[in-house]
Write a protein that binds this DNA or RNA. Sequence first.
DNA 1: ATGTTTATGTCGCGT
DNA 2: ACGCGACGTAAACAT
Lengths: 252, 252
Amino acid sequence: MISPSLDEARKELVIGLEARKLVVMVASCSVEYTGRTGSHLGEGERLVIVKGDGCILVHRGRDYQPVNWQPSGCIIQAHANDGTLILKAVRPNPLESLTLVVREVQFLGTFLLQDDAEFILHASEEEMQRAIILQPDIIEPGFKILDYEKKVPPGFVDVYGVDAEGNTLVIEIKKDPAGFPAIKQLLEYLKYLQAPQGKKLRPIIVAPSVAKGSQSTLAKSGIEFKQLTLQKAVEVLQKHARSDQQALKSWL
Amino acid sequence: MISPSLDEARKELVIGLEARKLVVMVASCSVEYTGRTGSHLGEGERLVIVKGDGCILVHRGRDYQPVNWQPSGCIIQAHANDGTLILKAVRPNPLESLTLVVREVQFLGTFLLQDDAEFILHASEEEMQRAIILQPDIIEPGFKILDYEKKVPPGFVDVYGVDAEGNTLVIEIKKDPAGFPAIKQLLEYLKYLQAPQGKKLRPIIVAPSVAKGSQSTLAKSGIEFKQLTLQKAVEVLQKHARSDQQALKSWL
DNA sequence: ATGTTTATGTCGCGT
DNA sequence: ACGCGACGTAAACAT
């Protein structure tokens, strides 16, 4: 619908809301919000999006984030009022409401999106862990893994094993430059772990780098640092994926 | 444009990008992201928004937040490739890139949004402070303000003054239910303040309520609590706005 | 340019 | 339902 009358737009909007379809509207409107705080936006042309799960977004011509919005789970209604189209979105908890006063609609479309794909986010910390587990010698030659996600009272040890001399390695992985929280976390874990008789406990932080202000703290803490970048981790994973494929081929 | 061919869509897209217009597209596409981490989203129908300032949003049929995005300041380009339309958005710093492979376009529109309105957010904490400053007796009768945003080493005291007996009031305002952080903050400030000879120092938290778990801590801390809701604050502000207007009228 | 704090943060997970 | 932490947080602000 291009440049529909307000009443045509209202009817289409109501039908779209009923069917829980995606509604996309470009319109001149003003916006009021009241709830956790309040806001006011005077009249102007904006992109308005209403989704089937009851959320609403009001976007201006710039900026990543919507100028006004309401998250999923709102009650959304449209009705005519005194020559304008009123669009209200009320969120029950916390109670907050968003009201659009629409003066003119440039475009209105409703869509039923067919979309069953799964969204996969590659969490880099997890990939780093998988790379270490697949190929422990990227930490150091002779390193053998005994356990991972090993439970200790304060949480889980990312990787746990022994080095070539039989010392116990306790590895904490961070995807970002390792800072004070990582050090503190690892020290907490150490309280609940001990090396075999005559052997040492070697705490190691594995991360792409050490955070600026934490260099000296790390040095004093007795924790070792081993660099592992995401890129290196991905390389290791791909190498093993290839060899897995090779193995599969030779099996068939 | 309704159900354009991929090539028609590409042309319109390029024109829209050139003109830095808002581009709204409903299309079947798959999405890849690599940068700080990586993500993959298989084919499906989505709403794609490209704004004039070089940001891009990919929305699915549900959820407030986009499934993939790129913030403002990206280099965005569209080109045909092997029977598909490729849309790439590259962010220079940090280096990350978003790639859409578009198979079919249901709708594509470009818009130049006329929007000069100012967005005003009513920060409730600030409004509460203004209400107290305009009418100090909402805290208690006889309260006189000496200063606000008063600098102390750990930060700023929201409101600072004396009660009817000459005791010093130190007020910390919170818009949300006051919890442990507010108590701690106020206690920090107190270290650097003292009452006149023979007078008391009265720390007070002003907030709509006290957080559940902090009731007992607050009681033990020696800090007083005075309820002030946003609604009450807004009432006070409106009353004074009206009296200001009255004064202005009588002046003319 | 870089680090820090805020947000109508939102969202997912555990109790 | 509520509390807590994570996020590709993004954005504003101070350094």
